[in-house]
Design a protein around this nucleic acid. Structure first.
Lengths: 204, 204
DNA sequence: CTTGTTCTGGAATGATCATTCCAATAGCCT
DNA sequence: AGGCTATTGGAATGATCATTCCAGAACAAG
């Protein structure tokens, strides 16, 4: 054994994640990472194969520390439209929490700057999409049990619509300070979903 | 007068636009631009203050050559939901036209990598958002005349929802080859809008 | 304290980048 | 043809970047 690692591996990745999230992969230099994480260059390169590998670790950690806390409720057994509403509330709360433009969603930001060659990165982005799609499908399916207005194909389409539409929310939250517009969007989305499923009112 | 400019200024900007669109601002070098546009470095710097100025010219040209042809119908006087449907069809057609993942929307891609300091760039992105919002509002307002189910505030909210939701379509079209999913999304969106406005069927 | 291991800080490397500069060149007008 | 101007190709500059390397500091165990 040797000296205790100053920041734990998780703390290291968390710091890097914060940087990548705010500025994007290409605008974060290794010097920035050394400064921000408090870990020396040598250690960074002994812990990770390079900048890209570290970024992949950040993408993975993003799933654990950001997506799961916000979206886990929707994925839970028995979740319905109410849980989707809670998810939206969490997004709005996070947006209102800090001043200045929001950082949006790390996955979506990355999607806009990735090239088809970066297969490792792309695989993670696609997995994220599948995760959200699946969670939304289950929640909508559950909600549909109440009135049975839609068949499974229609639920699938509605889940896909919701997923794509939500990505717009992430994009919009970046660079816009207009919380009220975002809230309006969330309300409209929920109403539309409820309308489709026959649920008259969504209680969060 | 001197030698005719090899490619006209428009052709120059169009070439640069194509590059920026596909790869993003930070992944296009001046060497790439020299190679692709066929204009020498010296001329590039005498025509534009620098890389960023050239990019701004591309953003402006994008409005003329991409947004207007696709979205102009929605902005036209008397346009309603049918024109919104035509706009969506154009997007889908463009997506299906070329193989490989789509390039998405230049404005949205840029939004994901811009920093708050780049005010000139941000101003153009915001203007784009306002343009779409306004066009959508007018079309929805017009459509609403038929049944008068919504008041102006509700139309405003619905236009905003549509705008944000559409941004998700752009994001999704990048990196996904699943045309069918995109078409499903467009259909669902149109149905939802029609439902809200009381129009039973949208004829494109 | 000594030894062995891990971590550090910074220098060195080689690549790429935006931008500037300029001598050579290519077309235009008289 | 000769002169004028716009354009060219490429070299030079200075900055930044990812990555490698290493001599020594910090620490744990004996």
């Amino acid at each position: 054994m040797a000296r205790a690692k100053s920041p734990s591996r998780h703390a290291l990745v968390d710091s890097a994640l914060k940087l990548f999230w705010k500025r994007g992969y290409h605008r974060v230099s290794m010097d920035d990472l050394v400064r921000e994480t408090g870990v020396s260059r040598g250690s960074l390169y002994s812990d990770f194969a390079g900048k890209e590998a570290l970024f992949h670790a950040c993408l993975d950690r993003y799933q654990e520390t950001v997506v799961t806390p916000a979206f886990g409720g929707v994925e839970a057994k028995g979740a319905g439209l109410a849980e989707v509403g809670q998810y939206l509330d969490k997004l709005l709360a996070r947006n209102a929490a800090h001043p200045g433009p929001d950082v949006g969603c790390l996955v979506l930001n990355t999607l806009a700057q990735v090239t088809p060659e970066e297969t490792e990165t792309l695989a993670r982005l696609k997995a994220h999409g599948r995760r959200l799609q699946k969670g939304l499908y289950q929640a909508l399916w559950q909600e549909n049990q109440k009135h049975q207005k839609l068949d499974e194909a229609e639920i699938e389409a509605l889940a896909r619509f919701t997923l794509i539409s939500l990505q717009g929310l992430w994009a919009q939250s970046r660079g816009s300070r207009d919380i009220e517009a975002l809230r309006q969007y969330c309300e409209t989305l929920l109403e539309l979903l409820a309308n489709r499923l026959g649920t008259d009112e969504v209680t969060t």
